[in-house]
Structures are given as C-alpha cells and as structure tokens.
C-alpha cells in the first residue's frame, strides 16, 4: 500500500493520489498510488460487455456472408444463372436481421422491429418467389398486422402481469388472432366474411382466461392483495 501526503494543518494523511487536502485545500505534496479506496472501477462492473457482443456480431456476419457466397457460387455453377439463390439470400438477410437486430435496439422496439418486420419480409419473399405478389397483401399482411397489434396491446396494457394473468392475456390474444385469421382467410377464399370455427375458440377462451385470473386473484394473489389493501 502506498502512503499519501500528510496535511499538518488538518492532522490527516491524504489518500494516495490526492494532490490537495480535501478539507483545507492545501497542497502538502503527493505520492502517486493506485490502491486507494476510489480505485478505478472493476472491469466487470464498470464497463459494459461490448467485447463479447462485438465477437458475436462479427462471427454471425462472417458465417452469413460465407453462406451467401457459397450459395451464389453453387447456384451459378449448377444452373449457369441465378435461380433459387435470391430466395436463400433473402432468408439469410432475414436471419441476420433476427440475430443481430436485438443488439442494436432495446425495449419495446425489439420484438416488433426484429420479429414482425422480418416475418413480413419473409412472407413477402416467399410470395414473390413465384414472380408475382399474390396472397401477401390480402392475406399475410392483415394477419401479421393484427397479430402484431394484439401482441403490442398485451405488452403495453398488461406489462406487469404475473404468471397466471399473463397466461390469461395470452389465451385471449390467441383467440383474437384466430378470429382475424378466419376473417382474412374467408375473405381471400370466399370473397366475404364467413365465421365457422373462430367464434368457438373465442367463446371457449373466455372461461379459461377468467378462471386463470380469478385463481390468481383469490389464491396466488391473496397475500399481495391483503397487503395492498391493508389499513
């Protein structure tokens, strides 16, 4: 342990590295030191984990780019022109986005920008692989949009739900998605809205969700409930 300077006026020894007495401001002379109480922060706590992220990012990019090049070479070598390679490119780009996107953003944007947008691009790519966009706009986009919207509502309105209540919300959301799917599919096939099965799912989900919520509020939530309303 290094020894700091001594302030005669205040009768105190200074921490190593301090140039002036923190009490009276005098400069008694110092000796450099690195073992003080306010030493530099420990690496693990003081810094974020950027190096590990950077390794992951570079490795992922390397693997995807290599796959992209290999796919292109194979396609061109076999068919002498580009045939199926663009579909694989699109898939690889989407995969890269799904793997690297979460590193670039935090919070609520993560599931929507990475998952929803990438899912939309994947559906569009599959639809467009036949040479024309047919079902993506009337079928894929409404289902995806509605699913995203319902997921957003569940995430934003019930952000702090406990286990069973969040399960109830998921059951309700799943039933709603079923309704949207049937509406979109029936409009695509029959040209109008025909409800055959989704209303059964919707009605069945109500008692299930209600049971989950009531069970949590009465049994699981009992102690918390009692504390919350303690007078």
């Amino acid at each position: 342990m290094t020894v700091g300077a001594f302030c005669e006026r205040c009768g105190v020894e200074l921490e190593p590295g301090l140039e002036t007495c923190p009490l009276c401001g005098a400069r008694p002379g110092t000796t450099p030191g690195d073992n003080g109480e306010y030493a530099p922060l420990p690496e693990e706590l003081g810094r974020t984990r950027i190096p590990a992220r950077e390794i992951y990012r570079r490795t992922t990019l390397l693997v995807l780019v290599t796959a992209l090049v290999v796919v292109t070479i194979v396609d061109v070598a076999v068919s002498r022109t580009l045939t199926w390679a663009p579909i694989v490119w699109a898939s690889l780009v989407l995969l890269g986005g799904a793997m690297l996107g979460p590193l670039a953003m935090d919070g609520f944007a993560r599931p929507f920008v990475t998952d929803l947008l990438l899912a939309a691009l994947l559906l569009l790519t599959i639809d467009a692989s036949n040479g024309a966009v047919e079902w993506f706009v009337p079928l894929g986009l409404p289902i995806l949009g509605a699913t995203g919207l319902i997921a957003a509502v569940v995430t934003l309105v019930f952000p702090r739900l406990r286990t069973l209540s969040s399960s109830a919300a998921v059951v309700g959301a799943a039933a709603s998605v079923c309704v949207v799917i049937e509406i979109a599919v029936s409009r695509w096939i029959h040209g109008g809205v025909v409800m055959r099965w989704s209303w059964i799912v919707l009605i069945a989900s109500v008692p299930v969700a209600a049971f989950l919520v009531i069970f949590e509020q009465t049994v699981g939530h009992y102690i918390d409930f009692r504390r919350r309303f303690h007078i």
């Binding site: 302030c7 020894e13 921490e15 007495c21």
Partner: peptide, 9 residues
C-alpha cells in the same frame, strides 16, 4: 489526534 482522510470528492 491524527488520522487519515478519504473523500469521494
């Protein structure tokens, strides 16, 4: 009485 001084300042 003499001692040591440590500060976060």
């Amino acid at each position: 009485i003499r001692g040591r001084v440590i500060t976060n300042w």
